[in-house]
Design a protein around this nucleic acid. Structure first.
Lengths: 146, 146
DNA sequence: GTATATGCAAACCGTTTGCATGGCT
DNA sequence: AGCCATGCAAACGGTTTGCATATAC
């Protein structure tokens, strides 16, 4: 593992991030967290996509651990699970409330700017219920010749 | 198969419904369609839930056929697939655009009145894309003592 | 008669779990 | 020492598929 300034900086960021969720910085968690938030960008991954990245590198993490770790991150609020496609689970490093674009052909999930979505009225919730969260997914297809 | 007026009426409704999708009214399709739209009410089913109903009756349909038939109905626009939960697919007999309530504890999916949802602004779609559909799922949890 | 639909069982794929090993504190 | 995390492989649950049989037109 590289020991340059950048790696150290990221490593510390990641350890801090983990501690926000009360999670101990084990080797695998640090590796995965770095791949999730290492560059400060929001990211959407599936367990398989995160596992695929790790297979390309020297520091490997088992698939089961990827699953367990994603679940752990989610349950302490470090990640958010997004359901857009019945066949797999997506995890979002942006845990704030915001809509998503979902490319139907490539199965890519990306954030949509929350400010541009304005919902002025929501259906009245049934008696005895409260809203846990409102998911807005804008499904996209590639436009053919215009 | 019953031959009374009601059954005939439903049977004809269902045959008409199937023909709207260009589907031949086979025995199994008619049985399933009747359970979906037979009473004129909107319904949300999973393959398993529809299959479970059929097991309770004399006219059975195999699970594989339930899956294939739901897919067939969907692909000709007679049903709409709703994704709310990674683990199973829901199918909605209401094919118009409308939001859904999803009870997180019981995994029940119900329609929410479309008129009560007002979206006045939607994020700008990326270049080269067009909106296929906008899914709005209002996740509910049961309110504890008030 | 010919194309299409059905049923069964086996395959499939993403995900979870049991259990033995290994690492923090 | 004790607890928690990891890794493997096997189990799992929902869904799809191959293929032989049956049905609609």
């Amino acid at each position: 593992m590289a020991n340059n300034k950048n790696a150290n900086h990221n490593g510390q960021t990641v350890v801090k991030w983990l501690s926000q969720g009360g999670l101990r910085p084990t080797r695998q968690r640090v590796i995965l967290a770095e791949r999730l938030i290492g560059d400060g960008q929001n990211r959407h991954v599936t367990a398989e996509s995160l596992f695929a990245i790790s297979n390309k590198r020297s520091d490997k993490v088992s698939l089961a651990t990827v699953y367990n770790t994603l679940r752990a991150f989610c349950s302490v609020g470090l990640l958010r699970e997004i359901t857009v496609d019945g066949s797999k689970s997506y995890f979002d490093t942006n845990v704030s409330d915001h809509p998503h674009f979902y490319w139907e052909d490539s199965s890519d999930l990306v954030d949509a700017p929350a400010k541009e979505l304005r919902i002025t009225s929501l259906p009245q919730v049934p008696a005895g219920a409260e809203i846990s969260k409102v998911d807005v997914v804008i499904r996209l297809r590639r436009k053919l010749t215009e």
